[in-house]
Design a protein around this nucleic acid. Structure first.
Lengths: 208, 208
DNA sequence: CAACTAATTTATCTTAAATTCGAAAACGTC
DNA sequence: GACGTTTTCGAATTTAAGATAAATTAGTTG
């Protein structure tokens, strides 16, 4: 085991990371490339260039391409969930279920379209990852899905959702509408607020 | 110019194709692999194996990997549009705009999830294609988008769509919900009819 | 049945990209 | 300002995949 691996291991264990500006630049660059080009077309050389280092430098911080990509995805998943969770947590207690769903829609779209290439990297690539990477991301992913399931279940329990809807299908269709936005939305063609408002309205009336 | 190119050229010109069973097997295989793995991860070797030939045989029918993939995408786009168009055409004249939208939702999902790997290949890969290939597919793609635009415009003209909705955003969100389905739907986890019915209901109430 | 053509194969070439390695900078410390 | 440690780099290695070439098979036709 080399010196390098020890360090990486240390990093992961204690949070005492001085998270090396370079390492962050590399991660950011990877997120960006990944969200634009997709898993298989993501080249280490491109990431390196964007991060302003040479390709071998990546190996100082990550043990392999897969490792780097897996890290980007993990960060993306976590940020997405945390952002939506904290938006919900900020609501006054007793907020109506439909308003909570509105909030989740808005938060999801904000992260996806404005805040984080990491989140976009996740939604655009989860489906095309090799099995072993996907496996590592599964539990975090299930948690986010669980969050949405609970949102919908609470709304249904309150009698706010039409009973003809298959709740799982409805949830996945809604999340699909949100996840697909990076494919078409462009800041120059319409404001983010328009998309968010339209999405809220569509979801609220679609479900209720 | 070799004999081979002449033949391929002939094929394209006149429709007198005896569309070689092998060529079709290759196209089908390519559609399948493409829809599963995505553009960059699609290997000629995998396609060949699925089509039960050796990789160089592909070059007898297609001049390059890009050519083959572009053909798959073109077929996929055309089939998707034609299927939805003919479903609409089969409706009695004077069918209400919302019912027409229902029909389009259903037809789109049927092609996407049941009828054609080609359609799935399109929705999952359009965003990651190299520019020159995307360029070739653009006009057909715009036509399909135009179809949906007209559907929504007619519904709005009839006063059936809430005026707070941004029509373009609404359209893209709806198409996103549909296009995302291949990412999660699995015949073993729920019937196609459930998904279709839920989608119809979601869209109808979401818009109107 | 010989000759031609279409279809497909095996073997080979080429290139692009990930990775490894050892050496050189850069940095902090005494 | 030499010394050890961290960080980065250029060059070499390896591998995988697309593409081409040449040979082979099978089928058709004169």
């Amino acid at each position: 085991m080399t010196r390098r691996d020890d360090m990486a291991a240390d990093r992961r264990r204690n949070g005492s990371d001085t998270p090396s500006a370079t390492r962050d630049r590399i991660l950011d660059a990877a997120a960006r490339i990944l969200s634009e080009k997709g898993y298989s077309a993501t080249r280490l050389a491109d990431i390196a260039q964007l991060a302003e280092v040479r390709a071998p430098a990546l190996y100082y911080y990550f043990s392999s391409r897969e490792e780097l990509i897996a890290e980007v995805m993990a960060v993306g998943q976590r940020r997405l969930r945390e952002h939506v969770e904290s938006a919900l947590a900020a609501l006054p207690p007793g907020t109506a279920p439909m308003d909570r769903i509105d909030t989740a829609v808005q938060a999801h779209l904000q992260v996806e379209l404005q805040l984080s290439d990491f989140a976009t990297a996740v939604t655009r690539n989860l489906g095309q990852l090799p099995d072993d990477v996907r496996e590592r991301l599964r539990s975090e992913g299930s948690e986010y899905i669980g969050l949405w399931r609970r949102l919908l279940e609470q709304a249904r329990a309150a009698g706010l959702i039409r009973p003809d809807l298959d709740l799982r299908a409805a949830r996945m269709l809604v999340m699909g509408a949100l996840n697909w936005t990076p494919e078409w939305w462009n800041p120059r063609q319409g404001s983010l607020t328009d998309v968010i408002d339209t999405a809220k309205s569509l979801v609220r009336h679609g479900l209720g």
